[in-house]
Every structure is written in C-alpha cells, then in structure tokens.
Design a binder for these strands. Structure first.
Lengths: 258, 258
DNA sequence: CGGGTATTTGACGACTGTCAACGCCAGTGG
DNA sequence: CCACTGGCGTTGACAGTCGTCAAATACCCG
C-alpha cells in the first residue's frame, strides 16, 4: 500500500505512521462495521493513510477539489459552509468515528469546508474507489446507506431547529445532542462532558450570534438546567432540557449508531 | 409479483394498475438509473406497486411504522417535520423522480411526514429488500450514494439559508431552486413555471411566516425580479436573483441530476 | 506586565412574528 | 340569481426576538 505523498495533499498535513484501522475501536462504528472480520483485510487496501491536523487547521475548503472520503479517527472537527465571506453555518460537528467527504459532484469542487477544532487524526480513502468498495463488500453499501440516512436525519433536525425553534430551544437541542454523542463514545462522567467548542462555534451551528448564544446560555444556567464553563458542559436537569429542546432521543438514532 | 394489499397500507390509498417503471422517463433519474438494461427486469421484482394520492393526502406521518422506500412518479409532495403540533418545517419538495423514505431506524417509526400537494403517484419498494438490492446490483448502491449525497447537499443549503440568510435571500434561493428543478423536468416555458404551492408552503420551507413571505414576495416583485401570481412563477431577472440568493447552480448538482 | 482571544453585559435598532382586518374568488346551497 | 362560507392572499399596526455596536472583564501565554 503506497503512502499518500505530500503532493496529493494540501500543505501542512502531516502523514502519520500507518496503523491499521482494524485495531481501532472507531472501526466498529464506521463504514466497515458490517464487514465480516475474515474479509476485513481486503477492504483495508482502499485506505491511503492517516493524517494529523493541528487545531484550526483546514482539511479542505469549499471550492477545492479533494477526491477523498474520510473518517475522523480522533479529535473534533467542524463541517461548515461559509456565507458571504465572513459568516459561516456549521452543518455538523465531527466526532471520532464520523464519516464525511461524500458529495454529489464526485470530481467537482467541495461544497463545504472541514476544519479541525482540536488536534485531529483523519483516515482517508480515494473517492474513486468507492464504487469498487461497494461492489466488493455489499455490507459497506448497507452501512453507507445507514450512515447517510442518519446524517440526513440529523441535518433535518437542525433545519427544523433553525427554521422553527427559538434560541433557547435550539441551544438546548444542540447541547443535548452533543452530550448524547459524547456519551456513546464514553466521554461522559457524572452528567459532565468536555466540549472543545467556543460559544462562537455553538452560535454558528444553531444560526445565532455569539452575543445571543451567551445570553441564552445564561438563561439556561439561571433556570438551573445546565452549567457551561471552561468548555465543560454539565447537564443539571436532563428531562427539563429534553422538554425544552423537543429532543427525541429514540428517534434520533443516536442510541444505536454514533 | 404480488400486488400490495390494502391491509399493508394506510387507508384511502388507491392502488393503480402496475405499469413497469421501465417505461417511465422517471426511471432514468432515480435509483435504477445505473443498472444495465439487460438486468433491469431482475431489479424490478423488488417493486411492490404504485399508488395514487389525492391532494393533501398523507402517504405517511411521523411516528407511523412504514417500512417502504418510495420514488415519486408524478405530482408534487412535501416532506416535512411537525413542530409543537401546529408549526411545520418542510424539509424538501418532492418532484417526479425523487426518491425518499430511507431513514436510519429501518424498522422504527418514521421521523418525518410525507403529504401530497397535488394528485401524486408513488412507487413503493419494501425496505427489507434494500440489502438484497444493494447486493444484487452494485450500480444501485452507487446510485443510492449519489442520491443521498445530493439530498444531503440540498438539505445543507437550506440549513445555511435558515441559519445565516435573510428572508429575501432565502426566498430567492427557494424559488430559483424550484425553478431549476422544474426546468430539468421540462416544465419551464419562457422563464415561467407552474408551482402548485401556497405561500404557506413557501413559508414553511424557508422558516418564515406566511405574512412575511407575502411581504418579501412583494419586495421581489417591486424590484422587478419575479412575478408570482396564481401559483405561477415568472423569473424576470435571473442574474440578479441568483446574486441575491447566493445561489450556485454549478455547485448545486442540480445540473446533472434532478 | 502586555497583548490577544473569549466571555459578558448594556443599549439600541432591525428584522421578523403576531394579531387583526379586508378583499378576492370559488364553491355551495337556498 | 344571490347570500353565505371557507381558503388564500394582502395590508397595517404593533410587539418581540434577535442582531449590532460598544465597552468592560476575564483569561491565557509569552
């Protein structure tokens, strides 16, 4: 398996020694989850290596051609669209195990940007090989369909939020969603999670300004529902928060897949 | 091939005589588009029949179990989420050739509702058979990935709109999007399309109220950009509208797939 | 200590929602 | 034929959520 050369990549991306995905718990959750163990080595030939991103480093920006599919191995990242140069809308927060990079115009420019929040390790597959992967391992096709459907559902819920909910409801929803996603990854201790996100990130995800996010966080705190300090979220009253957010955990499919 | 019995369906849905999808131009666009003609008959065994929906009739509502995948054969429909009982957020307008019904929780309750706008003909496949379809025809897997990616991209653009654009920009975007989708289907004549949508539908799609949509449509009219009367949209100044909407036709992938 | 970034707060204004009324039109029934 | 009704579109007045601008505070790190 050839390593990906720097020529093929945006600058500043550091290749890491190639450790097989098989050894990583992330594998259980992502694209290869359904492939029987005895055929895993076959599918692994599509991989092209792993890369380390520094905090705030972009993996790619919208408009660039970047014919890879990715799974996030470790760390946090954001997938967003830039608007009018300065504004941005975060589409989703990427957590370990998340899959991204698929888009309709396979060879065209990327429609969105991906930027690391913390240090992050990503794992790349050439998008050219997708058809071959789907042909060789039907389990991957099923898994891809399931992953797409779940991502779609989350995007829809965010759309419902920005379109039809008020600030406090949107924020409650986002915090609960992140909380549950972190819990699935074993990162919740005593109703408390470390979220490496600035208030600006929350604002850009729910379609508000940082100032108003700040005010709304204060209201959630004053109502005794959460604490959010030093990038640590504490859920104080999950039932009330769930009610405000109109958050349906069972329907969110977060229960079974990350 | 057994016809779908009424027992398997919500009431009031009228089965139609089974005409093979092969004869319909819609086929070219949807899930089976990539399957070589000589193997088409194989794949068609997964179909379960077509159904006629009356205007305003629901195909299914969120919460119901409805283990089918659909393609819309004819007519218009909306895919939406209900919020707090009375409000709703339209996720997308379904036009002929559109595929829907896939969701993460395969056997769980539907997360969204689908309602006919005009009379509509839908074509159903049991969702159970999806894995078999993906295994038997890898072209379907590729096509499904492409369709999912396109739907995702459109949802993302709507999210960007409701999150980071103002009323006039969102509305310009929506009208342009519908205009282009209709044009791909050969329904545009002299910059003019029939859209069977009430202003309330537009409002629920872009996250505004009907009153404000009305005001915003008036502004678009007074600026000489569009006319919208009797459910007929006329694009008077497409470049200016594209500018306001920040609409990128090439990136929208509407150019190659409906 | 100094500079930069993130958070917090207040005052003000704008965009959008809410409420209400009116007009138009098609369908309906007397 | 005509009054009546309901749906939809239109408009105005007003209110509220949220954005903008500005400044102060806190915090991190060299």
């Amino acid at each position: 398996m050839d390593d990906m050369t720097s020529r093929e990549l945006p600058p500043n991306q550091r290749p890491l020694p190639h450790t097989p995905c098989t050894e990583c718990w992330v594998r259980q959750l992502a694209l290869f989850g359904g492939v029987p163990p005895e055929r895993l080595s076959d599918t692994q030939r599509y991989r092209r290596g792993q890369f380390l991103l520094a905090p705030r480093q972009h993996l790619y920006r919208s408009g660039e051609r970047h014919p890879y599919l990715y799974s996030l191995h470790d760390g946090w990242a954001i997938l967003y669209h830039a608007v009018e140069g300065r504004k941005r809308q975060i589409i989703r927060f990427l957590l370990p195990g998340d899959f991204f990079g698929l888009q309709a115009a396979c060879d065209g420019p990327m429609s969105h940007s991906v930027q690391a929040v913390t240090e992050a390790v990503v794992c790349a597959f050439p998008r050219d090989h997708l058809d071959a992967m789907l042909r060789d391992a039907p389990e991957i096709a099923s898994r891809l369909a399931a992953i797409s459907a779940r991502d779609m559902q989350e995007c829809q819920h965010h759309l419902v939020g920005t379109g039809r909910k008020r600030a406090i409801e949107r924020l409650a929803y986002l915090l609960l969603e992140l909380y549950h996603r972190c819990r699935l990854r074993g990162r919740v201790e005593a109703n408390s999670v470390q979220l490496p996100l600035a208030q600006e990130d929350l604002a850009d995800a729910v379609g508000l300004t940082t100032v108003h996010v700040n005010r709304t966080l204060r209201e959630l705190r004053e109502r005794g529902l959460i604490r959010y300090h030093d990038r640590r979220l504490v859920i104080l009253d999950e039932p009330a928060l769930t009610e405000i957010a109109q958050f349906d955990e069972t329907a969110s499919s977060l229960a079974t897949m990350p």
